[in-house]
Amino acid sequence: MNTFPRHLLITRDSHADTRLDLLKGALAADAIVPYLGPGLLQLGCAKPVVPHSPEAVAAALTKRAPAPSKIRTNMWSVAQFIEQRRHRRTLQGWMAEIFAAPAAPTALHAWLATLPLSLIVDSWYDGTMRAALIATGRRDVVEIQGVTRANETRDIWTKAYDLSGNELDAVPSVETVLYVPHGSVRPAANFLISDSDYVEALTDIDIQTPIPDQVKQRRSNRGFFFLGCRFDDQMLRTYARQIMKRSDGPHFALIDGSELTRNERRFLAACAVTVIDMPISEAAARLAGSLPSDQNG
């Protein structure tokens, strides 16, 4: 084990193997919440069919409407630039185009979909976790998506859907809540993407108003396990911190320790998130049970 300043704990080698095996058991027992990020799209696919990072979304949007060079790599700023100059409907339509191709669920998504998890958080727009849950034939799942208030006359922060794509007036009692805080291309092309989308959310998120009650309830006696996530932007750190807020912990993140930025290290240390330093492909195979038995310890 190695530590960085500010008491960031990073586990490697045999310690990481042991920790991951314990987390596999915790997931199966519904004792920890998986928090999924766009990095999972690269599992088994050198070139994902949809963007797998905010920078890639910014590049895809800039191809449609060239943005000033100083903001060109910032997804939220590029989206705001388009919204102001082309209209919200144009931005939403382009995002739907960019994420139109269905990304096939990985073995990890498929495994998670079979577990009796109370809560899954999916922080990207691709809808892959939703597709994995649909593939199981389950009916005991509700998806709650963050929505932009730019299209709403009601005072709402989220919309709920069943896995058939029907919008629900109320969230029924179900085994699994799939929480997609930034929206998703499916079933209704909801996207929190521009700076203005987040103005009201960030104003109220410290008092937890935008976070659904079902999420607050189900996180209370659990920690979070971040998979395929990075925290190299303030927006990503803010949302992760607020979703973790008032949860019991402990928290873990599967991240290449050599790639961590200074801000990521500070954030992870401040939130008491232990880093598991292991290639995501190896970790996903270990979790989903596809490694040979002599490697599963």
Results as ranks from 00 to 15, higher is better:
residue 159 K to H: 13
residue 152 E to L: 07
residue 62 T to P: 10
residue 155 D to Q: 08
residue 114 T to V: 08
residue 119 L to P: 05
residue 159 K to Y: 13
residue 4 F to S: 04
residue 264 E to Y: 05
residue 15 H to E: 15
residue 291 L to W: 09
residue 256 D to F: 00
residue 252 F to N: 00
residue 101 A to M: 13
residue 236 L to Q: 14
residue 130 R to L: 13
residue 231 F to Q: 01
residue 25 G to S: 08
residue 94 W to A: 01
residue 229 C to M: 15
residue 248 D to K: 11
residue 179 Y to Q: 03
residue 94 W to R: 00
residue 120 I to D: 00
residue 72 R to L: 14
residue 64 R to H: 08
residue 247 S to Q: 01
residue 171 V to K: 06
residue 2 N to Q: 14
residue 111 W to A: 10
residue 216 K to S: 13
residue 130 R to F: 12
residue 133 L to V: 05
residue 49 V to C: 11
residue 47 K to D: 13
residue 177 V to W: 03
residue 268 L to E: 07
residue 196 S to W: 09
residue 283 A to V: 11
residue 255 I to Q: 13
residue 142 V to R: 10
residue 95 M to S: 02
residue 88 R to K: 05
residue 101 A to V: 13
residue 191 F to L: 05
residue 185 V to H: 09
residue 75 M to N: 01
residue 277 D to P: 09
residue 38 P to I: 00
residue 130 R to S: 11
residue 115 L to W: 10
residue 205 I to R: 03
residue 86 R to F: 15
residue 146 G to A: 01
residue 42 Q to R: 12
residue 91 L to D: 00
residue 250 P to M: 08
residue 184 S to C: 09
residue 66 P to G: 03
residue 75 M to V: 03
residue 234 Q to H: 08
residue 69 S to Y: 15
residue 43 L to H: 02
residue 101 A to Y: 08
residue 117 L to I: 04
residue 97 E to V: 11
residue 278 M to V: 12
residue 225 F to V: 10
residue 229 C to N: 15
residue 14 S to N: 11
residue 115 L to T: 05
residue 209 T to I: 07
residue 294 D to H: 15
residue 250 P to L: 08
residue 281 S to A: 15
residue 74 N to Y: 07
residue 61 L to S: 11
residue 77 S to K: 13
residue 284 A to Y: 06
residue 86 R to H: 15
residue 183 G to L: 01
residue 245 K to M: 11
residue 14 S to P: 04
residue 96 A to G: 15
residue 104 A to P: 08
residue 86 R to D: 15
residue 212 P to L: 12
residue 185 V to F: 11
